[in-house]
Amino acid sequence: MSYAISVNGQIHHVEDDGQTPLLWVLRDTLKLTGTKYGCGVAQCGACTVHVDGTPTRSCTLPLEVAASARITTIESIEGVEAQAIRDAWVARDVPQCGFCQSGQIMSAVALLRTLKTPTDRDIDVAMSGNICRCATYNRIRAAIHDAAAQLGTAR
């Protein structure tokens, strides 16, 4: 079946089974490989994308559901929060292997869009769905605080 799907501001016509997880449409069909497969069961967060602005695990979201929403991936996440997060990630050398970081950043940007100055507890709640086996958690936490502070100064 054919689906019109909005990804990163563009409409793509995708010929696929409606049950196909969005993750594989992004990766295999649209060649947007920044979004990663890590578990396939919405446990690790490596596949996190924004669905109408909400961080969502694309590995369990069927194409037929995703087709009615606006999808944003790591390749085109923009805005002051995204820029602040990225700058902080680089300044702190957050990534190690880096494989989970697309998902981490998608979750972190969504957090900062909701809460301007998240507490450690807020960060725990927002980020605990994203596993990092390199355990870069402390740097992620610090970078989120950095980004929040930078945005606070800029305002």
Binding site: T33, G34, T35, Y37, T73, E75, W89, Q101
Partner: peptide, 15 residues
């Protein structure tokens, strides 16, 4: 590699 790993640009085997 921090920037490339913060933009989804790094190509791993999976990609």
């Amino acid at each position: 590699d921090s920037l490339a790993k913060s933009t989804g640009a790094v190509i791993y085997t999976q990609d």
